[in-house]
Design a protein around this nucleic acid. Structure first.
Lengths: 225, 225
DNA sequence: AACCGCATTGACCCGCTGGTCAGGCAGGTG
DNA sequence: CACCTGCCTGACCAGCGGGTCAATGCGGTT
């Protein structure tokens, strides 16, 4: 797994450039319909170079996917108030995810839904599974505190993660003209409503509209210093 | 659109057989990874015959997709109590869908999520859009009756349809060992919770656990006569 | 200058797969 | 029986696209 070639600054930059071009194209036409030659053409280099940096197309995709998950998770972490109650934290996480996904739309069209290609279920699925577990933990905490209704935590968590991806997808694919912040709040509301033990709680959490932190910046496409 | 060749009984049967085999294989390995030759081999016929019944692989997929949507819609219609209130009808529709999708799993792995392939967004998307509109109408009705909280009906409807597909997907892909009826009820609960104007209403609708109608039968794979 | 290794090129190879085609068979009809 | 039409066959073709490779450039080190 770690036979990383030694890359010069130029090399690293070129590799990143290929990743970005690929992401862009995958997003536009999908993985299968993007030829290696399209990628290198977009980057303005020769085909052979592709195989200098990547074993093959598949490996590139995997690198891309893992990278995005990481960024998303980091962004979530940043926009969650560690002192808030479980349900609020879930809401913040969801809202921030919706915004993050919207801002980095081109990257997410890829992995939102986990079976574009049979080959990638593993990367993509374990990716979501991480988020699901994060949420499940919070849900358990919330149930214990009486904030969240008593139902199967894992099942609920899957739904929460799913619904976030779903609405991001809608936004990305042009349905829902709703501005992104509004959509994020809508999703937050939806999730709170679905989880809350009763509407006393739901309303109180909605009311305290503490918006989540930053993470409003798009991933820089290949802009290294 | 209607240049249907005249088919004898045998011909129709053979065509159906190809459709079924294709559905099976698509479900197993995905559209892109299923060769025409795999399909005909599974059906035990020669390759050329495929092109007797279908223009090409793509057209076969479209036929398949439309067919399944139709069946789902019909099944839903059958399992909804026309005299019930809007929210209850939504719940019944969702539960029935979850069950229907589970029973006909092999067929649904295909179109549940609408972007396996760029080429099919149109069929698949207009497919879901029909369901979304159905639900949106019910939601408007429910809002007017004070049963459903006042939020964007279309947005809510998308979520409802989405969540059904989502959990069906989980079930199909082996996560969630929960038995199907339980899962259906879980989804029903989730949806009711997400939509209800307050939990008085939610609870009352959950309590009256009137299970939806029939539609418990799997699509017969090519069993004519 | 001689050398080395990262970086880059593009022509070439080859397997795969969608799609074609010329022809053969069976059953119904005149 | 001759004939037509729907059904069926499998060898064949063509193009596409992933992946290879021998050759070259180029900047830094000795």
């Amino acid at each position: 797994m770690e036979d990383e070639r030694r890359l010069t600054a130029q090399g690293a930059e070129r590799k990143q450039q290929l990743l970005d071009c690929a992401a862009q194209l995958f997003a536009e036409r999908g993985y299968a319909d993007t030829r290696v030659i399209d990628i290198v053409r977009a980057a303005g280099v020769a085909k052979g170079l592709f195989y200098w940096y990547f074993e093959n197309k598949e490996q590139l995709f995997r690198e891309l996917a893992e990278d995005i998950r990481l960024r998303l998770r980091r962004s979530q972490g940043e926009s969650i108030d560690p002192d808030a109650d479980a349900l609020t934290r879930i809401r913040q996480g969801c809202e921030s995810s919706v915004r993050f996904m919207a801002i980095n739309a081109p990257f997410f069209s890829l992995l939102e839904v986990e079976n574009l290609d049979r080959r990638f279920v593993d990367v993509l699925r374990t990716g979501t599974e991480v988020h699901v577990n994060d949420v499940a933990t919070l849900i358990r905490e919330g149930i214990a505190a009486g904030l969240i209704r008593d139902d199967d935590p894992l099942l609920l968590a899957r739904g929460v993660v799913g619904i976030v991806g779903l609405y991001s997808h809608f936004h990305r694919t042009g349905r829902s003209d709703v501005p992104i912040d509004e959509l994020a709040q809508f999703v937050g509301r939806w999730v709170v409503r679905s989880l809350a033990a009763d509407d006393e709680i739901a309303r109180s959490i909605e009311r305290d509209g503490s918006r989540s932190g930053p993470a409003e910046t798009a991933i820089e496409p290949a802009a290294r210093g």
